[in-house]
Design a protein around this nucleic acid. Structure first.
Length: 315
DNA sequence: GAAATTGGGGCAAACTGCTC
DNA sequence: GAGCAGTTTGCCCCAATTTC
C-alpha cells in the first residue's frame, strides 16, 4: 500500500465534537484496525470474531470466509470448488489461482511501482524485459542495468490510496471507471466524481479517505461502541457507510439521507447515529430536557416529561 | 525507442434481497 | 442483527494501438 496522504476537508481539531469523539476512541482500538491518521484506511483484523470470519482455508488465499455454509472458504473459492469435481480436502490444498484484487509490488528490487500479478513487474519494467532486453524474468531481475523506479503520485480519486499509473493521474481501476463513464457520456463533473467515487474494494480494507474529520471520528467512535456491544461488522457493509457519506458529501453522519439507502445500510447508519448522539450525554445533561435518553441511566428508550403541565413539577 | 492508452473479455468477488 | 444464496459488478489482464 502506498503511504500517500489523504487530504481531509477540514483541519484536525477544527470543532470540539470531532476532537471529543476522537479522544473517546481508545488507542488499542485504533491499533486493532491498523489506523494511521495520514493514510485513513481501516484494515479489519484477521480472524476477529466481530469482523467477519476465519481466513479462507484454501492455500494461498487471503480472503475471509463469511458464513458457515461456505465451509471455511471465501466466496470466490466456494464458487470455484462448486464448479469443479475435486473433493473438499484436496481442493483446499491446491494453491489458489486466478484474479486477486489488491496491490502487488513490482519484483525489481526496490522498485516502488505497482506490478501485475501475471508478469510480476510494473508496466515499465515489463516493457523493458520484453522489448528492450528480451530476457526471461529471472535473468531480467538479475541484470545489472535494470534500475528501480520511484513511486508515482497518488491516484487523484479522494478515496483511493493507490498510485496513479496513468497520464490522467488515476490508478488503473479508476482510470477504467473514468474512461467508461466518459465514453457513456455520464461524467458530467470529473472533479465531483473524484470526490465521491469509492476506493477500489479490497478484502478487509475500508477507506475513510476523502471524508471530513468529523465523519471519520463518528465512524471510528461508532464502530468502537458497536464492537463493545458485540455486534458483527463485515468489511463490505462498512465500506458502504464510508461510500454513502462520501457520495452525499455530508459533514456529519447525521446529515445522511437515509431514504436513499438500502435497508442494510440504513440499519447500520442508525446504529452508528445512536452511539454518536449519546456521546457526551449524562444524567446532568438530560435533566434539563423534556425527553431524557434512558441510556445514561443504563436503561433502554426515553423518559418523556412533555405530558406534565405543572411548571413547578417539571422543574 | 519507450511508454502510455485503449478496448474488450473473463470471471472472481462484492453486493443485494430475502428470510429468520 | 445475522445468515443465506443468487446476481451483478467491475477488476484485472493482455495485446494492439497511439503518443511522446
Amino acid at each position: 500500500m502506498t503511504l500517500a496522504l489523504a487530504m481531509p476537508r477540514h483541519g484536525a481539531g477544527e470543532d470540539t465534537v470531532t476532537a471529543g469523539l476522537m479522544g473517546a476512541v481508545q488507542p488499542e482500538f485504533l491499533q486493532l484496525l491498523s489506523w494511521d491518521p495520514h493514510v485513513r484506511v481501516l484494515l479489519l483484523p484477521r480472524s476477529h470474531p466481530q469482523f467477519s470470519g476465519e481466513d479462507c482455508l484454501v492455500a494461498g488465499c487471503d480472503k475471509m470466509s463469511y458464513f458457515a455454509h461456505q465451509k471455511g472458504m471465501c466466496t470466490g473459492c466456494t464458487e470455484r470448488w462448486k464448479k469443479g469435481d475435486l473433493p473438499f480436502d484436496e481442493f483446499v490444498t491446491i494453491r489458489r489461482s486466478g484474479r486477486i484484487v489488491g496491490f502487488f509490488p513490482c519484483q525489481v528490487a526496490h522498485c516502488e511501482r505497482p506490478g501485475r500479478r501475471a508478469t510480476l513487474l510494473c508496466s515499465s519494467h515489463d516493457y523493458q524485459r520484453r522489448k528492450v532486453y528480451g530476457l526471461p524474468l529471472e535473468d531480467f531481475l538479475a541484470h545489472p542495468e535494470v534500475q528501480p523506479l520511484p513511486a508515482l503520485a497518488p491516484c487523484r480519486v479522494a478515496a483511493c490510496d493507490r498510485q496513479g499509473e496513468t497520464g490522467g493521474g488515476y490508478c488503473m481501476p479508476h482510470a477504467d471507471q473514468c474512461r467508461d463513464l466518459r465514453q457513456a457520456g455520464a461524467l458530467e463533473d470529473e472533479d465531483l466524481w473524484r470526490l465521491t467515487t469509492p476506493a477500489i474494494a479490497e478484502s478487509r480494507k475500508v477507506s475513510l479517505r476523502g471524508l471530513p474529520d468529523r465523519v471519520v471520528a463518528e465512524i471510528l467512535f461508532g464502530l468502537q461502541e458497536r464492537i463493545a456491544q458485540r455486534l458483527l461488522h463485515k468489511d463490505y457493509l462498512l465500506r458502504n457507510l464510508s461510500t454513502n457519506a462520501r457520495l452525499q458529501q455530508v459533514t456529519s453522519l447525521d446529515e445522511l439521507d437515509l431514504d436513499v439507502l438500502s435497508r442494510h445500510d440504513r440499519t447500520q447508519v442508525r446504529g452508528f447515529l445512536k452511539h454518536i448522539r449519546r456521546f457526551g450525554l449524562s444524567p446532568e445533561t438530560e435533566r434539563h430536557k423534556d425527553v431524557w435518553d434512558a441510556s445514561v441511566f443504563g436503561l433502554g428508550g426515553t423518559f418523556s416529561f412533555t405530558g406534565i403541565t405543572q411548571p413547578w413539577l417539571r422543574e
